[in-house]
Design a protein around this nucleic acid. Structure first.
Length: 410
DNA sequence: CCTCCACTGGAATGTGAGGCGT
DNA sequence: ACGCCTCACATTCCAGTGGAGG
């Protein structure tokens, strides 16, 4: 944290906040939508998508589009970009609205519709207030139709990560609203998924109402990744990046199946590491460190963000791992230890059934690994639970939680 | 090839927080 | 003040599971 003596614009050295490394850190933010000339290698996709949405610009119905592609291939980016441009390009007397919805966050029908209504509603125009929760689903739909009618001629709705949505009916009702005469506003839906089979698994009724064209996004190759990062080089001051930084970050990210998000993350992290080191250049060394950091951070966040009961369960598993030579333990054994911990800490003891689900959630998050084994006539089917990361590290992270700290003294 | 064990996991059901309109 | 809504989390019940060992 040594202040850089050469930095000129800063009065108080305590707050020089990385200026000697970053010139404009916003360029490295995840949701950042770059200008058209900074989007790399997606020209084809952009013009195809624009063609589909063209109707909206002139006041008639746009087509629905289903976009497939792996994470970090620019699906959200291109969708946002094109819908933004459609909004700007609209004919003088056409009012276009756009809404972006992350289905990972709002993954139920009600949540999705309520968020959409809240996002699109401009209270000063419509005079409608949209409560966050509390209404029935149908009331939220009604509110949404009202806001749409009051404000727009056409609307483009982006449903990101739609495969995480628990209920397909959103898709159906949104796409049907116009033809069913519920609203007088053209609706175009851009649904984004990283699972190719998404549409196949849809219910027939939904499929028939959600008429759509499909668009596939290929992963970025190493060259494109490099170009993407060079385009955001302005985030750093001149001469701060040493020559090998971007190629190396690109190489790391290319290994992860061409994920641009990861690439930019690594680059930003490397800058932060360099800043903390008090270095005045970002070097290959910082990139490597950033790469390792990213892995550990992700894991710590998972564990420290877990609910208390889940932490207690993990704690039980770490206790067993630390105090024995085995690595994997039967659920019943982990549960016994968990009971002890709960009693000692004066916590509620959950049922075995719920406990199993908690472990399963942790397995889904990649903290625990579960293997099914069969002991035959000696006792049928069991699950074996094993920590993926070093038990000591998990233990330390869990014990940072004030509610569980008492345990450390035993 | 059949049995048998002790856990697994689906389904139904309950509870309480948070929030609405009347 | 009240009824009504959703949703997350939890419990209870029980049919199903599938390989070691007879």
């Amino acid at each position: 944290m040594t202040p850089d003596p050469s930095s000129n614009s800063v009065d108080d050295p305590l707050f020089d906040s990385g200026h000697h490394i970053f010139a404009n850190k916003d360029l490295l933010k995840i949701g950042h939508v770059p200008e058209a000339d900074r989007i790399v290698g997606r020209d084809d996709e952009i013009s195809k998508l624009a063609k589909r949405l063209n109707g909206a610009v002139h006041g008639y119905s746009p087509e629905n589009v289903m976009i497939y592609g792996k994470t970090g291939t620019g699906k959200s980016l291109v969708s946002r970009h094109v819908s933004q441009r459609a909004q700007n390009a609209a004919d003088g007397d056409v009012d276009i609205g756009t809404a972006y919805l992350d289905c990972a966050e709002d993954n139920t029908e009600t949540q999705a519709i309520s968020s959409l209504a809240a996002k699109l509603n401009d209270e000063s125009v419509t005079g409608i207030t949209v409560p966050h929760t509390g209404l029935s689903t149908s009331k939220y739909y009604k509110l949404l139709w009202e806001t749409l009618d009051a404000q727009f001629d056409s609307i483009i709705i982006i449903l990101d990560e739609i495969d995480l949505m628990n209920d397909d009916s959103v898709l159906m009702k949104l796409s049907r609203a116009e033809e069913a005469g519920k609203i007088d506003c053209s609706v175009g839906i851009i649904a984004i998924s990283n699972k190719i089979q998404y549409v196949d698994n849809l219910n027939e009724r939904v499929k028939s109402s959600f008429q759509h064209k499909e668009l596939f996004f290929k992963p970025y190759d190493a060259n494109q990744l490099r170009e993407i990062m060079f385009n955001r080089e302005d985030a750093f001051h001149d001469d701060v990046l040493s020559d090998d930084v971007i190629p190396l970050s690109a190489a790391f990210a290319a290994q992860e199946h061409g994920d641009a998000r990861k690439a930019i993350d690594i680059l930003r992290h490397a800058g932060e590491v360099a800043y903390e080191d008090g270095a005045d250049q970002v070097t290959e060394h910082h990139v490597r460190q950033a790469q390792q950091h990213a892995e550990k951070d992700r894991f710590r966040e998972l564990v420290s963000g877990a609910p208390t009961q889940a932490k207690a369960a993990l704690l039980a598993l770490t206790e067993l791992s630390v105090n024995s030579n085995d690595e994997a333990f039967l659920t019943s054994r982990v549960y016994d230890r968990y009971e002890l911990i709960c009693e000692h800490l004066d916590m509620d003891v959950l049922s075995v059934r719920r406990f199993r689900d908690i472990l399963k959630e942790q397995a889904f998050l990649g903290v625990v690994e579960i293997e099914k084994i069969n002991k035959g006539s000696a006792g049928g089917i069991h699950l074996q639970n094993r920590l993926i990361e070093d038990p000591q590290v998990v233990r330390e992270t869990i014990l940072e939680d004030s509610r569980l700290q008492d345990w450390a003294r035993e």
